[in-house]
């Protein structure tokens, strides 16, 4: 198992991969920038499991923190309101830290 590519606190952007078929990355998060909150460890990829491929490889999964105002242009709420998603490693790429993370 390769070591996790990202560590807690790293800024990441969610990719918009051209995958057809079953995926677990909601459309509203694709292209958005967040920060790794927790490394969950390796899990089998649902993009394989959905087609009966149970032999792996496992992929690292991360909890990623997003600012609600980054996700929803018309969001009404506190500047510190957050949304958390789990994203598999191949959907993430390094990014510049979002402004809300630089400030804190």
């Amino acid at each position: 198992m390769p070591v996790p590519r990202f560590t807690v606190g790293t800024a990441v952007q969610v990719l918009d991969l051209p995958i057809e078929g079953h995926i677990r990355i909601p459309a509203y998060a694709r292209g958005k920038i967040g920060v790794i909150e927790r490394c969950c460890g390796p899990y089998l990829n649902p993009e394989d499991l959905a087609y009966g491929r149970t032999g792996g490889p496992a992929v690292h999964l991360y909890q990623v923190e997003f600012s609600q105002h980054d996700l929803w242009p018309e969001y009404i709420g506190d500047a510190e309101d957050r949304l958390f998603l789990e994203i598999y490693e191949h959907w993430l790429t390094p990014a510049r830290p979002p402004s809300w993370r630089q400030a804190s």
């Binding site: 079953h22 499991l49 959905a50 009966g52 149970t54």
Partner: peptide, 14 residues
């Protein structure tokens, strides 16, 4: 048995 995983069910309704 491994005949129907949750992810397969999800693919089914998707």
């Amino acid at each position: 048995r491994r005949m129907a995983s949750l992810d397969e069910i999800r693919r089914g309704f998707e």
